[in-house]
Amino acid sequence: MPSDLAFDIDCRLRVGDGIRHYHIRSGAALTSLVGPSGVGKTSLLNCVAGLARAESGHAIIGGRHLFDMGEGLFLGPEMRGAGYVFQDARLFPHLRVAANLAYGARRKRLSGGPQMLDETAIIALLGIGHLLGRWPATLSGGEIRRVAIGRALFSRPSFLLLDEPLVSLDPARAEEMAQLIISIRDELRLPILHVSHDRAEVERLAGEVIEIA
């Protein structure tokens, strides 16, 4: 049954000059896609988040149909409940950290389902309480990424998309971030789709691994 699967994605995407086919069926809450740069890992995340359109195919996450090009179904990005943590974070530069966190805050998940951590608990988990009054431009790389994760979690996402969450962090920060992702995985029990070019990173997060070549 598709609804038992965390991820049921089967689609064709335009990546660069060609069309690529992605086939992901995974029951693991944390599913990692690993492959060299240029194979369209980010394109796939954009497509799942609703920022890009697939040429054909469908995506079902946690039993919710996000798009099905054959059926003419395409949920807008605001209806998907994606907690998308971009590789470049994309914090809003004109809003302080607190306003960035609050930007997408919802009380309930779009998909229904159990309530997760409340906002105080999210701030505590990420250790960003002391940053709330700061401007994004004044944050360090590790802080930016934690705030970006916090902003995604505040929106009560139905699933998380993590694009290279450890890249360009120093080893100590990367270690912290990996621990954080593991605790999000265990405490929030959200489907997490994680992409990385780094095998070691993927192995430490100990989810199901799908190779993309």
């Binding site: 920022l51 994606a82 994309r90």
Partner: peptide, 23 residues
């Protein structure tokens, strides 16, 4: 204005109009 910020706002639940007005 970085278009990617508008995309980020959309994934956070903002309609086109709200993303325009707030970003």
């Amino acid at each position: 204005v970085d278009r990617r910020l508008v995309g980020a706002a959309r994934t956070l639940g903002a309609s086109r109009w709200r993303a325009f007005a707030t970003i």
